[in-house]
Measured scan of single mutants.
Amino acid sequence: MGMPNRKYADGEVVMGRWPGSVLYYEVQVTSYDDASHLYTVKYKDGTELALKESDIRLQS
């Protein structure tokens, strides 16, 4: 078993793309699913969504 190939840690605050949009919002990573390679993130309004790594970026 190798290390999970994840870029962002639980609790890390990053920018997540809103689905169907080009806009990124501040989100907190809450979990990562090794099987689906999706991150569960929480937006400031409390919305929780699963995002692909390509829809997440570090805060500038």
Rank of each mutant, 00 (worst) to 15 (best):
V13Y: 13
G46V: 04
Y8A: 03
T40P: 01
D33M: 02
N5W: 05
P19A: 06
E48R: 08
V41D: 01
V13A: 06
E26K: 08
E26L: 10
T47F: 08
Q59S: 14
I56N: 01
S54N: 11
L49Q: 07
V22Y: 13
A50I: 14
D45E: 03
Y8V: 03
M1V: 15
K52S: 12
M15E: 11
E53I: 04
Q28H: 07
E12G: 02
T40R: 10
S21R: 07
G46D: 05
Y43P: 01
E26N: 05
Q28S: 10
L51G: 00
H37D: 14
S60Y: 08
S21M: 06
P4S: 08
D45L: 02
L23F: 14
Y43H: 09
K7Y: 05
P4N: 12
A9W: 08
Y32F: 10
Y43E: 03
D10A: 06
V22L: 15
P19N: 06
Y24L: 05
R57S: 09
A9M: 11
G16M: 07
Y24F: 12
E12Q: 13
W18P: 10
A9D: 07
G46I: 03
L38I: 12
E48Y: 12
P4V: 11
S36N: 13
V41I: 03
S54V: 11
V29T: 00
P19K: 05
E48Q: 11
K44V: 11
V29G: 00
M3N: 15
L58A: 15
D10I: 11
V22R: 12
L49P: 00
T30F: 08
G16F: 08
K52L: 13
G46C: 06
V13R: 10
V29I: 14
Q28G: 02
L58Q: 13
R17Q: 05
E48V: 13
M15I: 07
S31A: 12
Y43K: 07
V14G: 01
E12S: 08
T47L: 08
N5V: 13
G20R: 05
P19R: 15
S54Y: 07
R17P: 06
E48K: 09
G20E: 07
L51T: 02
V41Q: 00
A35R: 10
S21Q: 09
Y8M: 01
W18T: 07
G16S: 06
S60I: 12
I56T: 01
S31R: 09
D10E: 07
L49D: 03
S21H: 06
Y32Q: 00
V41S: 00
R17H: 04
R17V: 05
D33E: 04
P4W: 04
A50Y: 15
Y43L: 14
I56V: 04
G11E: 04
P4R: 03
G16A: 15
G2M: 04
V27C: 15
A35L: 12
R57N: 07
K52E: 12
